[in-house]
Nucleic acid binder design. Structure first.
Length: 103
DNA sequence: TTCCTGACTTTAC
DNA sequence: AGTAAAGCCAGGA
């Protein structure tokens, strides 16, 4: 496990329930704002929610989800976030205005 | 070593 | 406002 991945996981794990974050935000927090793509790649390799990495709380900068690449599909991700109290906009995006996690 | 690709982001048309 | 292209870093062929 590369240190980069471990740091990315640590940040994602720190995301409080009912809150979401973006790849770029996380990448910037771990000191690698140019590696936003690798953050997403880390999520792809993440052990999953059971492993302590709620990758479903990580969304695009505009609040949209990964189309077709999510752990179990965008629908499952939306359902999980809604279960945590995250509101969704009519356009299918997360309400970043009030649910975007800020360190 | 060069080219291609990717759970991203930003800028331009 | 919506769509298209470029930029970015790292790894694989």
């Amino acid at each position: 496990m590369d240190n980069f991945f471990q740091r990315a996981f640590s940040v994602v794990k720190q995301i409080p329930k009912g809150r979401v974050s973006t790849y770029g935000q996380i990448a910037h927090m771990i000191g690698e704002p140019r590696k936003a793509r690798y953050v997403g790649f880390a999520m792809h390799q993440s052990p999953g929610v059971a492993g302590g990495v709620p990758c479903h709380r990580v969304v695009f900068k505009d609040g949209s989800l990964a189309p077709g690449f999510a752990f179990g599909g965008p629908d499952a991700q939306r359902e999980l976030l809604e279960a945590e109290g995250v509101r969704f906009l009519e356009n299918g995006k997360v309400d970043m205005k009030h649910f975007l996690w800020e360190a």
